[in-house]
């Protein structure tokens, strides 16, 4: 009995056909001097092949830590995965539990099967090497090409991500490029080995809107061409409608709503999602507006999350029971989940 239980626990988590990723009840905590920060506390997410899932939330919601946990990039922090599983289908069709994988194997996966891009490309590009050397190195390591072939592939990647004059730019150092150009290089680097999943953490946040529009168009284009799934982490709910098929809204370390983008944006079921939508300045603003509708109160401290629903203190629909009972993520329909005790009775 005990034996079979162990076997069960060691078996990689199941992944339905057509899915590349399933995050189940993920818990990532940071053990700091001030106390335990439960940055990700029970996050469940899934991603189909070729699909884009946006994770949207304010700073401190846990959206970035979720991405870093999937990539297993927490080693140099005080962050530890305390619970949950991350099932991922590799390019060989094998289902792996990323959280149980030996580091050496995870290293092979990073870049080859899963790639990540960040808000600040300078943090992931090496200032000492040219752009071409860095892309070519990745191609040599992961695809075993020789120098010549790797350089050729790097050139064509730079061309693919819309870098003009790639023959000259391949010899540039990161600091010689503009912010938008660097993000293109990062995308080229991420694409180098044809990953099945790209995690993009606020990739356009530091860019001007005109450059943001270019990068979004590029990301969607390469995603389609490479049939890649993407997790797009952002604070900008307006961007979600442009990039994603599905959206997960995070608040205080938890997913409070998840569903198809069109449903969630047009008919949100969670009061927080509604509130986020209401405090965004929108172009269809009526002329005699009475101002934006801010969300009252402050984000709760991650050291001491509130009892019951984490949003209750700021929620205009809260009832006494919301302060006592922690809501579970419930299905509104087959594709749409919400974490609210009152979702059935509210029309938002």
């Amino acid at each position: 009995m005990a034996r079979s239980e162990t076997l069960l626990a060691e078996r990689p988590p199941a992944l339905e056909p057509g899915r590349v990723l399933a995050v189940r009840d993920l818990q990532t905590f940071f053990f700091t001097e001030a106390g335990v920060v439960k940055a990700v506390n029970g996050v469940t997410l899934g991603l189909a092949e070729g699909e884009t899932l946006a994770i949207v939330g304010e700073s401190g919601s846990g959206k970035s830590v979720t991405g870093l946990t999937v990539m297993r990039l927490l080693a140099r922090t005080s962050g530890r995965v305390v619970g949950g599983s991350v099932a991922f289908r590799s390019r060989d069709g094998e289902t792996l539990d990323l959280l149980a994988l030996p580091e050496a194997q995870m290293q092979r996966l990073r870049g080859r099967d899963i790639a990540m891009i960040f808000q600040d490309p300078m943090s992931s590009l090496n200032p000492m090497f040219t752009v071409g050397e860095q892309i070519a190195e990745s191609i040599r390591i992961h695809k075993g090409r020789d120098r010549r072939a790797a350089r050729q592939e790097a050139l064509s990647l730079l061309r693919e991500v819309g870098i003009s004059d790639p023959e000259a730019r391949i010899r540039a150092y990161p600091h010689q490029l503009s912010g938008g150009m660097r993000q293109r290089v990062m995308i080229a680097l991420a694409l180098a080995c044809g990953p099945r999943l790209l995690i993009a953490d606020e990739p356009t946040t530091a860019l001007d809107v005109t450059i943001q529009a270019q990068i979004i168009a590029l990301l969607k284009d390469v995603q389609q061409r490479h049939r890649m799934a993407m997790i797009f982490i952002t604070h900008d709910l307006k961007l979600v409608g442009e990039v994603a098929d599905r959206v997960a809204v995070m608040y205080a370390s938890q997913v409070v709503e998840e569903g198809p983008v069109a449903d969630v944006l047009a008919a949100p079921r969670h009061p927080y999602t509604r509130a986020l939508l209401d405090c965004i300045p929108r172009r269809d603003y009526d002329a005699d507006h009475t101002g934006l509708k801010p969300i009252p109160g402050l984000l709760p401290s991650p050291l001491d999350p509130p009892e019951g629903c984490r949003f209750h203190a700021r929620c205009t629909f809260a009832e006494p029971r919301c302060a006592a009972v922690e809501p579970a993520l419930e299905a509104v329909d087959a594709a749409h989940d919400v974490r609210c005790l009152r979702w059935r009775e509210l029309s938002l």
């Binding site: 304010e58 700073s59 604070h235 900008d236 709910l237 509130a275 986020l276 405090c279 965004i280 300045p281 101002g291 934006l292 509708k293 801010p294 969300i295 984000l299």
Partner: peptide, 10 residues
């Protein structure tokens, strides 16, 4: 953050 931004704009 957007929720705070709205407050300060108002």
């Amino acid at each position: 953050d957007v929720s705070v931004q709205a407050e300060v704009v108002n």
